[in-house]
Design a protein around this nucleic acid. Structure first.
Lengths: 216, 216
DNA sequence: GCGTCACTCACCTAAACTGGTGATAAAGTG
DNA sequence: CACTTTATCACCAGTTTAGGTGAGTGACGC
């Protein structure tokens, strides 16, 4: 199954003994794979994984001591070629986002069947990025939210956009007026115009809409 | 193969006649699938796809006339439940990013083998997000790059986070107080606490910091 | 029993919001 | 051409909302 080169070496970082040993057993019993180490914590892994450095490490997130995400960040820094795959029960956006940002090359849920797990290990060493379907959908949804469909044109004047930017940067009416060289009352009028165009009714709402719609 | 419900209806938007007809032939010849239409351009698809609206559309990017990415944006806006999968030769970051932002639920390369293509269609209607391995890796790499997650812990209490969320949603002190069942004055004090922890001095600044640091 | 923390409230000041008015210049109309 | 319309920027006064300070209670840990 491994294309050309011999054997895929894999390490496991997982605190539940049963699962950890089960995974090691699975890998050692599968043609083309070998488990080079199984560790109950990131700390253990950091001190002993380099005894026989694998190509891939399966990393749980909810670990005692240092979290798997922190572990991924450290290991990716120390061994840049080591491929890290999270194997976890968490499927919320935040964990997924943090793990991928920390340097994970894949994100699998623990309910992944063994056959698919083995397939995923093959995939990752061949330049892929295995993700459980639910995770993949969430990753893509993150993108969908980044750019709301067909950005709307609120027809703000340049002056209004400049003022809006200043509000986002934390200015009050007073400081904005000083910087723009006009009176507080004038700022108020411009704000009214901005509120009307953005269909909001407060400075905070305007700021939220400006950030979410990339107006600034 | 389709779990529970009967048949997966698929449309094809692809300008090369051979590939378009080949795909239609493949789908109609596969148990559980039916091709509801095959179109040579986005313009054609827009005018006729709703004659028999499918669950999924396979969309090429490099089309004559309107690009597939623009088509995805329009179709996603017009039929939000329609699942759109790009089927293209392009595997550069920009195309991938734009397609996903436009509303694609999957991104496949044209060299995807037919069996995998059929599998992907199943995956997408079951809430997944099929991507060719190379594409998945690039998507994940995008995350790795936008990575400096300064991830500070501001130690906000759950109550404070809830209040902060309400501000982002546009609440005033008054409406927030009503919804949280406390007085305006109490809200004011909580805000002071939030300001101290976030090191800001106004509602708008707090909202900006909350959005930028993904606190909400 | 002492300190810390989360939550509560009242009071007063500062800032933001609303409605009304007007000047100017560019674009469209008889 | 003169006339209206529209868009932009400007100002004030009055009301509403937000911000700053001080103070109190109950829960938890040491």
């Amino acid at each position: 199954m491994p294309p050309g080169d011999s054997i895929i070496k894999v390490a496991i970082i997982e605190d539940q003994r049963v699962l950890r040993e089960g995974l090691a057993f699975l890998l050692d019993g599968t043609e083309g794979f070998r488990c080079t180490g199984s560790f109950g914590s990131v700390e253990q892994a950091l001190s002993r994984i380099s005894d026989d450095l694998p190509q891939v490490a399966l990393v749980d997130i909810g670990l005692p001591g240092m979290s798997g995400i922190e572990g991924i960040r450290i290991m990716k820094g120390r061994w840049p070629d080591l491929l890290l795959i999270t194997l976890t029960i968490y499927e919320d956006d935040e964990k997924i986002f943090d793990a991928l940002c920390a340097g994970a090359s894949g994100y699998l849920l623990k309910r992944t069947p063994p056959a698919r797990l083995v397939e995923s290990l093959n995939e990752v060493v061949n330049g892929g990025a295995p993700m459980s379907p639910e995770v993949a959908r969430r990753v893509i949804t993150l993108f969908n939210n980044v750019a709301p469909p067909g950005k709307v044109d609120y027809r703000l004047t340049p002056h209004e956009i400049r003022l809006l930017k200043m509000l986002v940067e934390g200015h009050s009416y007073k400081t904005a007026a000083a910087e723009l060289g006009s009176s507080i009352n004038t700022i108020g009028t411009h704000m009214q115009s901005i509120y009307r165009k953005l269909q909001v009714h407060s400075k905070s709402e305007a700021v939220v809409k400006a950030l979410r719609n990339r107006l600034v």
